[in-house]
């Protein structure tokens, strides 16, 4: 008799909740976290919009090292003289502003540190950059070596399109060299402040 009562009680417990299709908890979190956004990118290929203003077409490749650090390599080709911002504030009498640009190249190396373990997707970052640019004119060449610090912001605009903006400040070592046939013109070396704003758009890559 006791057994019958016990079985009856168990039956009641099992039927206490309504009999209907119930959802289950799911350990496959990826299914729910996949929003199509490349927020865990390994690399970023980026074009610097602000460099176009100065006549350079700069492309950069940024590689994530871990969730905090990344390194960036950049290369630039100067397609025209652009707007020489420095001319506006630092006009040099001997510099041949009327000469045609014959060739312009540049490269850069950057180390970046992101906050909140968010490298390299959406977060503020601090960066240290070495950049070397040379512009050749008909009779002169101009070389600028910049070492600067950047405080910047990274955004994910759409699924894989990134945007970057930053404020730069640092040191510029520049050299004006005569490459023409006139003899007796010495090179001019200058050291000064370098600062500015940079922005660009990129594409996130997930390997």
């Amino acid at each position: 008799m006791t057994r019958i009562v016990l079985f009856f009680c168990i039956g009641l417990t099992l039927n206490a909740f309504s009999q209907k299709d119930l959802p289950t908890t799911d350990s496959n979190a990826k299914k729910y976290l996949d929003d199509g956004k490349n927020t865990d990118a390994d690399a970023d290929i980026r074009i610097a919009v602000t460099s176009i203003v100065t006549g350079f077409l700069d492309l950069a490749y940024e590689q994530r090292i871990n969730h905090t650090y990344s390194v960036e390599l950049g290369g630039g080709y100067q397609f025209n003289r652009g707007i020489d911002v420095f001319k506006l504030v630092n006009e040099l009498e001997f510099f041949p502003y009327d000469e045609e640009l014959t060739k312009g190249m540049g490269f850069s190396v950057t180390a970046k540190r992101y906050g909140g373990k968010e490298a390299i997707s959406e977060m503020t970052f601090q960066a240290l950059t070495y950049r070397n640019r040379t512009s050749a004119f008909e009779t002169y060449s101009y070389n600028a070596q910049d070492i600067f610090y950047t405080l910047g912001w990274k955004y994910l605009l759409s699924n894989s399109i990134s945007a970057q903006a930053g404020f730069n400040a640092g040191l510029r070592l520049s050299k004006y060299a005569h490459t023409g046939t006139t003899v007796g013109i010495e090179d001019v070396k200058k050291t000064g402040f370098y600062g500015g704003f940079s922005a660009g758009f990129g594409y996130y890559i997930k390997y």
Binding site: G115, G116, E118, E122, M123, T124, W153, K154, Y155, A165, F167
Partner: peptide
Amino acid sequence: GSAGGGVSFGNIIRFVQYKAL
């Protein structure tokens, strides 16, 4: 706490990125 930071120039230009830690 939070990571990140921001600067704004008036109400038009703002660079802000924060993340709760």
